[in-house]
Structure formats: C-alpha cells, structure tokens
Simulated assay, not measured.
Amino acid sequence: MSIQSIVLPRMMQIGSGACEKLPEFVRAVGGSKPLLVTDKMMVQLGYAEQVLSVLREAGIEADVYDDTVPEPTASSIMGGVVMVQNGSYDVVIALGGGSPIDSAKAIAVMGKFGGTIRDYCFPRLVSEKGLPLIAIPTTAGTGSECTKVTVITDEANSEKLLCVGTAFMPTAAIIDYTLSLSVPPRTTADTGIDALTHAIEAYVSRKAGLYSDSQALAAMSLIGPNLRTVYHDGGNRAAREAMMLGSTLAGIAFNNASVALVHGMSRPIGAFFHVPHGLSNAMLLPAVTAYSIPAAAERYADCARAIGVAAAGDDTDTANGKLLDELVALNRELKVPTLAEFGVQKADFDAVVETMAEQALASGSPGNNPRIPAKEEIVAIYRELW
C-alpha cells in the first residue's frame, strides 16, 4: 500500500434538503457576491432558480453563467472566466453534473490567475488558491464535487486536458440527492457507470491505500445494487440517495488513489468522437477489466463481492467470471452502444486510433493500472470496442 495524502472539501452537507445550507456555506468561505456556474438545462428545469431563491431569502444576490456545455471546452469556459475577471465575485457556486462543476473549477482558478487552460494541465500540479468553490452535483456520476481534478477539451487539437491539483478541489460540497430525481435514464446510466468505474479503478489502482479502499468498497456496495433500479425507475428516492452517496464516495476514492486504464483510454474517445465521458467508460469497462484481471485477480474478486454479484464464499476465479458477466449484462441492459452503434465511422476511427493510444498513455492514468499496457495493447483494446 502506498502512502496517501488525503484531500477533501473543507465542508460537506449530505442529504435531502441539503441545499438549504448554501447561504451558510457562502458566508463560511467569506463570500457575499457569488457567481453561479451552471448550464441551460439546470435553468430550464428550475434548479438554478431554486438555488438563487435560497440565496435571495438569505439576502445574497448571485449572477449566473449558464453557457457551460457537456464535455467542457477551452472556449465554453471563457465567458465565465471573463465574468470573474471583470466582476467583483468572491465565491463560485457550481450547479449541475460533472461538466458544470469541472467548468466552474477552471473558471474559479483562471478567473483569478488568467492564462489558458493548457497552462494548468498535467503534469503541472496546480496549488494556487482560486476563488472559493461550492459544488452542488445534480447527477450521481463524476464525483467532481470532491476531486482535485478537472478535464477540459482543447478544441484546437481534439485533446482532453487533465488538470490536477488542490486548486481544483471544491472548498465545500452540497450532496442533495433530490436534485437528481429528474435526471433522464440515459444520463442516469452513463453517470452511474462512471461512478462504478471510479470505485473499481480506485480499488485496483497501484496507488490504492487503506483509506481509498474503504471508500471504494462502500461506493461499490451502494452503486452495484441500485444502478439498474434508478435507470428503470428514476423516482425511486432510496435508490437515488444510495447512488448519489456512492458517487461521492467513489469520487473521494479515486481522488486519493487515482483512476487507471479505463479513464486513460476514455478521454481520447470523448475528445475525438464527442462520446459522453460516462458512456465511453462504460464501453471500455468490460474489455479493460478482462485485460487487467490477471494482474490483480484478488482485488477484482473483491469488487465482484462488493457490487453484489459474487457471494462471499466464491473463489477468486468464480467471482471474476461473475464480475465480467455482470459488466457485459449491465451494458446490455443500460443500452450502452458500441462505437459503430454510436455513429463513429470506421475510417475516422482507424485514422486516429494510434493517436488515441498515444494520448491515453500520455495522460499517465494507464500507469496506475494493475497491468500496464504497451501502446499496441491499447490499440487492440480500442479495436475490441468496435
């Protein structure tokens, strides 16, 4: 087990109605003029107004930047960066799924320090203190509310830039599962498998430790039995609550143990073909797990038991067989497409698959995998997805 440096939000409020604590959090971080960073869907669904009215009732007026996009880009965050640079905001509030939260992380840092997103990308570790950030997730997926990571696409060369450091850790997080009740089935599935991937990868990572293990196993035990339920019945409050907490715990786990090969390979798929992040993880998870099991058979068997598909008495090989069967069955039930079914053209895929493998390796994530692949092995796994 490696030594782990644990980084978490300074404050967290978890449970139904947790949003009511937002004004207290704003004041606790020294804020009085917030910028709410969100997207058009949160405005349309009324969640943005719900947050603004909670603030208003406490005498706090906030402005809104709602031009964030799914899979945020260098250009989509610039409007928010400019607002921070030209305004007198002293706290950023992020509302939405992983994309608005990731956008807000970059806005809170770049709004204060300037530059381009490439200036902040890995291997640089960014520790400067941007504006305080309060994250309010509305999907059970990325765990971005408790990670020191943001991923922003540089459109100039279709590359997802991984930005890492304590600068990107939210100061506070509000985990209110009621905000996820209206999330549609497709998004529920994609974000749910993303959270499951976070937990599995954190547990099998070469950087795993006792602390992250405890979070990862707890996350799997919450996500495994509830993912199908929320996909088929989004109004099931108990299942939504389990998924939301599972997502947060999975975020804490991978934030402190790192992700591995699935995420390393997932980012280029998203950058080149605009596949949502959770969906590309789902496409990869069965094949990468099958590739990796020989190097960490006991760990993957633990995952099978935590998810609930293997019994405590199952031997390692049996448990891993059940894990692989479950990951394939889950993708089938949650209607996860192949790349071809998603609409990617074979010629386009063949033209960039080598570059994708190079970008995956350059991200560093494959180096955390129990079985570390060569470029040719990554290309072979990509081709399996077809």
Rank of each mutant, 00 (worst) to 15 (best):
P72I: 06
L179M: 02
F254L: 12
E341M: 03
L361R: 00
G367D: 03
G270M: 04
F113H: 08
S247T: 01
S247G: 03
A340E: 13
G17D: 03
T187E: 07
L385F: 02
E145F: 13
G96D: 00
E201V: 12
G234R: 07
C19P: 10
V43K: 15
S53W: 12
A282D: 02
R371A: 08
G111M: 14
L330T: 12
S16L: 12
G235N: 05
A62G: 10
I372A: 06
G364D: 05
T188P: 14
A301Y: 08
E20D: 06
D315T: 07
V149E: 08
S32G: 13
I134V: 08
K40H: 13
K346Q: 09
G278N: 00
R383S: 04
I223Q: 13
I93E: 00
D90Q: 14
A301D: 05
A312N: 03
M244S: 13
Q50T: 10
D102Q: 00
M11C: 11
A257L: 04
A104P: 12
L125Y: 09
H232K: 11
C163K: 09
G130M: 03
I174F: 15
V43D: 13
L210T: 15
C19S: 12
C146A: 13
M220T: 05
Y231P: 00
P70K: 11
R124V: 12
V344C: 03
V309F: 15
A156R: 08
A94Q: 01
E354A: 06
L196D: 00
D233L: 08
T171C: 07
G246C: 09
I269D: 08
A135I: 10
T197H: 15
E377D: 01
I174L: 15
Q215P: 11
R371F: 09
L385H: 02
A290F: 06
